[in-house]
Write a protein that binds this DNA or RNA. Structure first.
Length: 101
DNA sequence: CATATGACCGCCA
DNA sequence: GTGGCGGCCATAT
């Protein structure tokens, strides 16, 4: 991954406000990426200092290895979780959140 | 170059 | 509602 793409992805995640969430695909689109996988890749390698817990799968679920921590953090921000999935209808950020600040 | 492996996604049965 | 499958794309071997 070249540095520019890497940083755009980090910037998109960083711009997600507390109490809101976005899917990996949303972040990819926001950062001009064509692959949601790459977003997960970046977060796994260089996401420790980002609000990575606000990034979810397209169905509102989360990967098994981070599930506990993610849910704990989200609940602390008032994000509603039902049947193991975040209620995207209530907390999903509208596309363009990065530019239209 | 070929295969495998993921913090993934959309479609279809 | 669930799984399966193909597509996706960077990295590792």
């Amino acid at each position: 991954m070249d540095e520019a793409r890497h940083e755009r992805i980090r910037a998109a995640v960083l711009a997600i406000p507390e109490g809101w969430v976005a899917t990996y695909g949303d972040v990819a689109a926001e950062a001009g990426e064509r692959s949601a996988r790459v977003v997960g890749k970046v977060l796994s390698e260089d996401g420790a200092d980002l609000p990575w817990h606000r990034v979810l799968r397209a169905d509102g679920s989360s990967a098994p290895h981070i599930l506990d921590e993610q849910h704990a953090r989200l609940r602390a921000e008032g994000v509603e979780i039902r049947d193991g999935r975040v209620v995207l209808a209530h907390h999903r950020l509208a596309s363009g959140w990065l530019s239209r600040r």
